[in-house]
Simulated assay, not measured.
Amino acid sequence: MCGRFMFEPDENPMIERIFDLAVSGGFKPKTGEVFPTDQTALIVPGPKQVQVVSMKWGFPGFKSGQTIINARSETVMQKSMFASAFQKNRCVYPTTGFFEWNNSKQKYRFNYQTEAEPLFIAGCFNYFDEVAQSVLLTTKPNESMIQIHDRMPLILAKNQINSWIYDDRFAKQFLSASMPQLTSVNVNSN
């Protein structure tokens, strides 16, 4: 499901650059552990190239006070809540790892084999009462994830960011892509 992730500018030069771009644009993305409804740094389409903004993580749900934070890659083009956002407003969540909980409520942090490499998570955004809000996409888990949870984020390589944001054909095909193998660490927190 991916209910939290890390955004640590002090831990990674690329994430620090993304943070600096957001701040220089007048945005204030949350750093450290990012929770649903937080303002998070996002890479979004710009007129000529991608740009960095911050945006609330989560769409308004069907009930008062409910927040939808994830969209399934398998159904994102069919679900009315997400289809337009996916078609018109794709974005990328820059992270330094994400968290997932197993059935025993054990918390695990997931990263690439080398923790220094950022994880880029595919997402989309839309406007609600003229305010942009985002969701990240999830997919079926691979071998590195399946023992912990039955979903995982849709993870992009750095060189796939522009294609995800600007290339409709690439984005549609990527919805069923195989995900990279990750490492996990039990952080012993509920």
Rank of each mutant, 00 (worst) to 15 (best):
T37N: 13
Q39E: 15
Q39V: 00
T40F: 01
T40H: 00
T40N: 02
A41Q: 04
A41N: 04
L42H: 00
L42S: 03
L42A: 11
I43P: 03
V44I: 15
P45M: 14
P45G: 12
G46F: 12
G46I: 11
K48V: 13
K48G: 02
K48W: 02
Q51Y: 01
Q51A: 12
V52P: 07
V52A: 05
V52Q: 07
V53P: 01
V53S: 05
S54A: 12
M55Y: 03
K56N: 10
K56Q: 14
W57H: 03
G58Q: 09
G58K: 09
G58S: 10
G58F: 08
G58V: 09
F59R: 04
P60A: 08
P60Q: 07
G61L: 06
G61K: 04
F62K: 11
K63H: 12
G65T: 09
G65V: 10
Q66Y: 02
I68T: 13
N70H: 08
N70F: 06
A71H: 10
A71Y: 11
R72E: 06
E74M: 10
E74F: 08
E74A: 09
T75I: 07
T75D: 05
T75F: 03
T75E: 06
V76A: 07
M77E: 15
Q78S: 15
S80G: 06
S80K: 14
F82Q: 02
F82S: 01
F82K: 00
F82A: 01
A83L: 00
A83D: 00
S84V: 04
A85Q: 04
A85Y: 03
K88M: 11
K88G: 04
N89E: 06
N89C: 05
R90S: 06
R90G: 05
Y93W: 13
Y93N: 01
P94L: 07
T96E: 05
G97R: 07
F98V: 02
F99M: 04
N102A: 11
N102E: 11
K105F: 10
K105P: 01
K105C: 06
Q106M: 13
K107P: 07
K107E: 13
R109N: 11
F110Q: 08
F110E: 06
N111W: 12
Q113H: 14
Q113F: 13
Q113N: 13
T114Y: 13
E117F: 06
L119F: 01
L119Y: 01
L119P: 00
F120H: 08
F120P: 03
I121E: 02
I121A: 06
A122Y: 02
A122P: 09
C124Y: 02
C124K: 01
F125A: 05
N126R: 12
Y127V: 05
F128S: 12
F128C: 12
F128R: 12
D129Y: 13
D129I: 09
E130G: 09
V131K: 15
V131T: 15
A132D: 09
S134Y: 01
S134R: 02
V135E: 03
L137Q: 07
L137W: 08
L137H: 10
T138Y: 01
K140G: 11
